[in-house]
Design a protein around this nucleic acid. Structure first.
Lengths: 136, 136
DNA sequence: GTCTGTAATTAGAATAAGTCTAAATACAGA
DNA sequence: TCTGTATTTAGACTTATTCTAATTACAGAC
């Protein structure tokens, strides 16, 4: 996704599209590896003519999460990862590599049976995380 | 659960039952609030005639996880919580209070339909986390 | 175009969660 | 009781994240 499109996207979400925000958002949209803030930092700092502060990366990520452009993932302790796939989807964690794969849900949605959520538990969202190994 | 029973439990799991370990394990077994390491620390330090080091709490929690007596939970960033309920179960996170509730699965187990895990993804485990609000 | 006030960014300090280290202590088995 | 290993300890260290106060950029008024 090129600069202009990212800019438009940010504006649609009511976010002032600064150079830093464009570059962070652009990176997250083009990658599928669910980076941490530090990984975003490293990947993105060379794309900017100026310096990039850690605080800006954290601020931007938080803003994008608040505005619904990004999802925060906590699949393993001490690591917050970010996912630009904001549709309802689930995750598969490869135990060996630590890699997280997106699992898309198609049209009809997902059904969980053999299990009843008690009446007073009003859920607006759920996510399923699978753990295992991807054979190649 | 009294001291002796916890002691026996630890021994069954091949863990040398020191006073510190008994007290940490005992607390986790009696509570259902999925405490963090720091919360365990606070709750438990007065039950011991001697001092209790942070390192011991962390070591003990890690040991209990390794030996399968405890489950590690990462439902929100920056917070590792511990759960002595090691059966296969799921969680409900109350967005307002942050409280985590266990959701037990009965006999037949759980079925997910409308969704197919690709053949090369070999999962040995999965967990479902619901988010919402508990009405009382 | 210039001014002005707000919003964004910056470097670096501060905090919080967790790990490491080296020394002291406790404990099981000879 | 002795001895070697396992456990615990306090505190230093690391890593992830947040805060702070000063600087810079930018949108809208003129």
């Amino acid at each position: 996704m090129n600069r202009t499109t990212v800019e438009e996207l940010l504006m649609e979400y009511g976010i002032q599209p600064t150079a830093q925000r464009c570059v962070v958002t652009g990176y997250l949209l083009e990658t599928d590896c669910h980076p941490t803030a530090e990984e975003v930092m490293r990947a993105v700092k060379d794309r900017l003519p100026c310096s990039l502060s850690r605080a800006t990366v954290y601020n931007t990520l938080k803003l994008l999460v608040d505005k619904g452009l990004l999802q925060e993932l906590s699949t393993e302790p001490g690591q917050t990862r970010y996912d630009a796939n904001t549709g309802h989807h689930h995750h598969f964690v490869d135990r060996e590599s630590g890699r997280i794969y997106d699992l898309e849900v198609d049209g009809e949605g997902i059904w969980i049976s053999g299990f009843e959520l008690p009446a007073e538990y009003k859920a607006d969202h759920f996510k399923i995380t699978f753990y295992g190994k991807v054979e190649s």
